[in-house]
Every structure is written in structure tokens, then in C-alpha cells.
Nucleic acid binder design. Sequence first.
DNA 1: TTGAAAGCGCTACCAC
DNA 2: GTGGTAGCGCTTTCAA
Lengths: 345, 345
Amino acid sequence: MANINEVAEVAGVSISTVSYALSGKRPVAPDTRRRIEAAVLELGYSPNAGARMLAGSRTQIFALTEPLRNDTHAPTHMSFVLATAIAARRNDYDILLLTDEQAQAGMSRVAANGLVDAILVLDVAPDDPRVALARQISTPTVFIGIPDDHDGLVCVDLDFEAAAARAVDVLVDAGHASIGLVGQTETAYVKSNFPPRVRASVLARAGERDADVAHGTSGIKHADRAWVRRTTGDLLAGGATALILHCSDEAHSAVLAEIESRGLRVPQDVSVISVGASFDTTALPVSVDSIPLVPQTSCDLAVELAIQALGPDRPEPGVRLIAPTYSPQGSVAPPATPSSETAAS
Amino acid sequence: MANINEVAEVAGVSISTVSYALSGKRPVAPDTRRRIEAAVLELGYSPNAGARMLAGSRTQIFALTEPLRNDTHAPTHMSFVLATAIAARRNDYDILLLTDEQAQAGMSRVAANGLVDAILVLDVAPDDPRVALARQISTPTVFIGIPDDHDGLVCVDLDFEAAAARAVDVLVDAGHASIGLVGQTETAYVKSNFPPRVRASVLARAGERDADVAHGTSGIKHADRAWVRRTTGDLLAGGATALILHCSDEAHSAVLAEIESRGLRVPQDVSVISVGASFDTTALPVSVDSIPLVPQTSCDLAVELAIQALGPDRPEPGVRLIAPTYSPQGSVAPPATPSSETAAS
DNA sequence: TTGAAAGCGCTACCAC
DNA sequence: GTGGTAGCGCTTTCAA
């Protein structure tokens, strides 16, 4: 591996000129620049990462803490890891992955040894232990998700509350007065921050709009197909004419299977809206209206904030909520049997 | 962040003694050592990562290249990423995650700038482009999986061929003469290295043992429940008295559902063996005999080889196959209707 | 527009 | 058993 001295020698300039030519932090004569670029190419030169870390003040590495617990929904979590990595690379950053117990221990470690410029936190629990860590260390930290206690933290997330409220509004506006919510696994309501937010918001908005809501989960630890079908059946039997789905890919398909097996059609007999899905709801057996959770959007913003935190004007602590978007797919219609005659008159 | 000078000052020793006390590369008097440790604790000292990289010759970072394509089975891939991270940390290494297009571009980059000591390759395709890259760079590279062209490479993997052959042997030994293989998705046979290896080995061994084999897949890109049930039905209708499953968690459960819905029992009417599963087959509706793929085993060995590659005696290039283990769960029995009377006599 | 040189914080060699 | 110090390869003043 060639170093900056060899490049300087070949190009016939000093090493500082090489450095400035490559960083662009100082104007370099066009001709000089060309000779340097030629030398770089010829030698296959690439600035040594360790030396840059030491001399410069940036490591060009972000830590990503993501426990990757095995009771989590792998595809969703993988999407976020991937989206974070993509967002980071767009800004010339690499991702150091801290999983398992290292999600916590590693955070302190890399903050202490200066391996990373900032830390991104995924899979945020309501009472996440990484909150306390983030407050102790001086390395800028951005949460993708909102812990209960987020005082002084920088957090980014989809506005799940608004998304849930919007779903209720759409259904009530269409004439539905009884709504079923097929939620996440029971574990998710304890270990994750957003399932309770969606549920609370659905209940609150339904209350405001005078609609009934019943809530069911999609399993214990993992989405359970039979469980989901039972939940769906119970909700429909309970009089729900519309369903809000806040659950996994497979759970969505189980819901649709149950609806179909009951001889019901979407949207004529049952209206369906998906909330917070990070997969393609148009690839389901029946296309479903969606207020999606787009990992790339959250992760792009998180990376942007992390980078901003390294500059002179650090971002204000606080929660940044991403406005939800509604993607209609024709899975919502007025109820077949209006719940009240007055509504139809 | 305190540096080594401050520690030396507080402890009343020279910085070299501090360095040696911490690395243990030179004997240090017990008393001196204690004073240094006290100073380290007091100052919260942690050696600067960049400085260590530059001065020492180790970065204590491995790159992990894993494309994380969205047509892959997320849970399996996540297990491997997690297992790699755990194995790495056990050896004081961190993992730099290279995904997406960075799985390739990043490999050259980190090899050139010396950010990592070695590279671990996951999700290996039969014609993986990272093979060519690995040959170009001087950074030690270990493949977890076996590309078609693996000349001169260090590869680690479960011995899928032996696992598949073993499954056939167990079934034939139990009296089965007609076996069905429920395989992976069609995409997997093109994009991954091991599905073809399992299929080929099942066919070959069945040929040697004079058993019939029929093969079906579990979907196009993603395991498709209805597809799997159809495949299963076809295999059973075709006369198979035993099934070898080399497919996802969900596909396993779909197979069992189809068997049950046909009024058949495991193992009385149908014997079942799972090959290369990295999930718990005893958690299925019916416990299934398994010759599992244990990510941690492969990843531990890969990390061990990577570390060895940094020392004086670099490992020989070549494929390291991990011997499969058979875990009986009572899902194999002699066929209900012996395929030949002679076998029963 | 360019160059010289002082570090950045360690590791490891050479002395004692 | 311990200390001094020369780098590691870069970034960034300070001078010209």
C-alpha cells in the first residue's frame, strides 16, 4: 500500500499539497492537481484510515447498535440496518455493527476509544437501557425510534400517532363505526416503542370520532398464523366492518386468508388499511391501502442529524416525527351494512 | 478523553510502561501495575482506536460483506450476521458491515485504506463477484459458503453434501424407497451456493441407494405457503413416503399443515427430516428430525481462520467442511405401506 | 499556489 | 523492571 509520501514524490510536490488536492480544502493549481491524480492512480493510493482518524478529527464511521434479538421480526430489522448502511455510505460513512450484548457494552467502548463519530440506535425499547448510556457519553447519538424517556435525546421516527389517527379517519369518513385493530405480537408491545403508540392513537382517535374499536394481537413472540386468523375472526364476529393492520407481512396475509375463507370480500364487505408496514402491501393477495413505515426516510434523516451533530451547530435535542403518507389501493369502501340507518339517510 | 500521557503522569511512570502494562507484552511489577490500573480507572482511559491502528499493525476490525438482498431469507441471514458479530467480539474484534453495492465496492475500499484486518464473506453466490475481488486484494478473506470457483480461497461451510446424504441414508435405512425433497425457492438455486449442493447430493445418494426422489421448490422468490402445500401434495401423491425438507421455517410449517390436512401422521404415514435448518425444528407443530445448519459454528471457525491469517502461519487455502450432526426427534419411522414386500420379509 | 514541520496517541525498539 | 524515543501516515497550521 502506497503512502502519501510516495504519491508526493511521484507527483513532484510536497505531501501537504497531495493532502489538499485530495481533500479539496485548499485550492490547487489545475496542472499540479492533474499530476497528483495521475500519481494516485498509478500507485493505487488510498489514504490510510488509521492515520486519518488520528490526524483528522473524524473517523468516518458510525456505530449502529441493534440488539438483533431473536424475538424480533427479522425482515423489518434487516430493512433498517440496510437503510442505515445505505444512508451512511451516501455520506462517506461506514457502519460498525454492535449487536447482542455489544449493543450496550459496545456503545460505551466505541465512545471511549474514539472509533466512531456518532452512534445510531435501532430497535428502541420503551425503557431502553441505551438511553442512559447515551446521556453518559459525549459521542453524538441519534435514536431511530422513541423511548419513553427521551429528554435531551435526538430521536427520529415515523409519526405513528398521526398514521394511526389517519387510518381511523379514513375509515370513519367512509362510514365505518366499528373498527378492528390487528396488532403486533404481545412481546412487541413490551419490547418495542411504536406498537403501543399505534394502539393508543387508534383508540384515542376512534373515541374522538365515536367509533368502536377492538384490539387483537398477532401472537406471543412470533406472528402466529392460526392466532392471527382467530384474532381476525373474533374481530369480524364482534361486528368490525373495517380492519387496521399493524403487523407483519405474514400476519397481513393470514388476515386476508381469514377474510376470504369467510366468504367476505375486500373492500365490499371488509375495509382494510395497513399502518406502519415496511413491506409492499400491493404484493399481498389483495392490494391493501397503506400508511407505510419507510426505513430509508427515517435512516436518511438520522444520518443527517448525526452529521450535523459533528458540525458547529448541533441539532436541538428533541423528537423529529416524519409525516405519514397515505397510499390508496382500493381496499377501503363504505360498509356493506351501514352501522346506523341515520348515516345512510 | 484522557490519553496515555495523562495516565502515565498520574501513575508516575513512563508511557511505555503504561502501554506494556495494558498490553501485557512485557512484565510489569505488581505494584506498578496496580498504580497504572488505578490511574486508568480514575481517568476512564481507553486507548485511542486511530492511534492503535496507526502505530500497531492491527485495526481490530473485520469487514463483513453481506449484500442483504431483499429476495433473501432475512431470519437466516440475520442469524449469520449476529453469529459473526458474536464470534468477532469474543476475539476482540468489531464488525464493519458492508451491504448492498458496498458489499463489493466496500471490500476494495477497506482493503485499500487498511480499515480492517480481514474480510468475512456471507451470502456467497455460486458465481460470486467477491471471489475475483478477494483474489485481487491482500487483505485476508474468509468465505462462509462455497462459491463454484473457490481455487485458492479459504472457505468454511456446513458439509451440506454429507448432511443431505445422511438424510437419505436414514430414510432408506428405515425402509423408504420413495423420497420427496421440498427445496428452497427457485431464486435460491441460482443466487445461493448451498441449495444446489443439497439437491445434487440427495439425488446422488438416492441413486446409490436405489431410492426414487422427486424434487419440488417452495416458491419463486419468497417461500409461498400455498405453493409449498401444493409441492408437498404433489410429492405425496407421487408416492413419496418420506420428505426431506430444505426450506424456511414457514415452509416447514406449511409442509406439516399439508400433511395433517391430508389426514396423515408424522411419522406413521410420512417420515420427515429437516436438512440445513438454522431454526429450532422442535418448535414446529410436530418435532422434526434435523441435520441443522448452526451459524455460530461456521462463524466461529471463520473468525478463527481470519485471525490465523494475520499471524505467521496463514491457513492453507481450501474448503473447511463442518461435519453435520443428526438430531433425532422421532419424525422418522418405517413406511406404512412398505414399497416392496421383499423388504418386509 | 505551494512547502516545511508540528503534532495526533499510540507501539515497540533500544537502552539502562 | 523501567524509560526514552522514533516512527506509523496523515491533517493542518505557519511561512513563503
